[in-house]
Design a binder for these strands. Sequence first.
DNA 1: CGATGTGAAGCGTTTCACAGCA
DNA 2: TGCTGTGAAACGCTTCACATCG
Lengths: 227, 227
Amino acid sequence: MPTDIPAVVVDRLPHYLRTLRLMLDDGIEVVSSRELGEALGTTPAQIRKDLSYFGRFGKQGRGYDVSALLGDLTRILGLERSWPVVLVGVGRLGRAIITYPGLTPEGFHVRAAFDADPSIVGSNVDSVPVRPASEMERFIRDERIEIAILATPGDVAQDVIDRLVACGIRGILNYAPMTPHVPNGITVRTIDPVQALQTMTFYLRDSEEEEDLLPKRNRGRRGNGRR
Amino acid sequence: MPTDIPAVVVDRLPHYLRTLRLMLDDGIEVVSSRELGEALGTTPAQIRKDLSYFGRFGKQGRGYDVSALLGDLTRILGLERSWPVVLVGVGRLGRAIITYPGLTPEGFHVRAAFDADPSIVGSNVDSVPVRPASEMERFIRDERIEIAILATPGDVAQDVIDRLVACGIRGILNYAPMTPHVPNGITVRTIDPVQALQTMTFYLRDSEEEEDLLPKRNRGRRGNGRR
DNA sequence: CGATGTGAAGCGTTTCACAGCA
DNA sequence: TGCTGTGAAACGCTTCACATCG
């Protein structure tokens, strides 16, 4: 398996996974890169090139065996096993994340949640124990946890990130609206709905003028959001 | 203002905004591209190049006036006004989104929520009225709403997207775990924590072997997640 | 002198086009 | 014949390096 895969390629693999599962559920056994591309909104060439980074999975003249490719991608992404995670910050958002039923079926198990507020420490959220922030490092080290979900306010997020990294966390799913700084080798993904909305408004900016049917100075074609 | 801006550039502007606000709060009046780059985890060159797509905002020998640049970026992104949005799908996730206090201060106002379930139609979530899905199109058209937040189950999401697009929605913030298909000119941003986690596991995949201190065949440097 | 704005170079990703194989 | 896998071309983004100017 090649040692340097473009990050954009890795980012697309979960999409492939999801679509292949749907196809398997529909009883589709073989799929061509053209068909997969249509389902995913990409080009056949991109799918073939992406997969070629990891090996040769197709049968010429036929396409890809859905079930086999599903298995291969699952293994490539490291999803044949389950992953324990911790959550930091048990506010409104943190609770919603713990309660979200989509993580467990994908193999991500929230083992503990941490918060600085003594009034909620000791309680349970959806059977996940809330522990004091001071015990965070020990728990992560003892349980050999590598993934953390961060749902604290933005102003303490960087401190928490530094602590997480120091005790062995290697992947952080960040819900705090801030710019995370981490050393090389640590993967951070930030989920930020406001940021997403703020990029959309750029493209919507002055559309009301167009809607008013006033044929002003001809507005040039503006780039649209990808996908 | 140029008519074709790379999408990656637009995606970064909200980050710039956020950081500039923090700097303004800290009383910083002037910032150089080097300082901004450090705060953002990018290079000075990228910031200068990004900004250059929209005009000339800096003073040579000095840097950028924080407050002025903030205003310019706010205008560029179309954020000097507030944006009405609708939410579709009032399940656990939909409620969490409505309840999330971060949208309103940024100027995004959820005007109505829609759901097919008659048992919740007519209720309010955090003072947002839940209306029947059948009234969705009329409401969007009457109120001239351009942005929708989608929080339905994945299997109905594409149908909803088609309806949204048909009645004038131009930007969709998609929380459904699926691949959205939209015509050109419609902006979709998908928020998918599972996808984010699944890309992280790729980089963590076989780290336990390394941890076990068994000096196996030398493992090459593997690419890490950007940022 | 210090920092911007920007052509041009460098680099990474996507697309093309076709050889090779079932 | 049909579709994969893949070098090579095309494209787009990032980085460089410097002329320019307060």
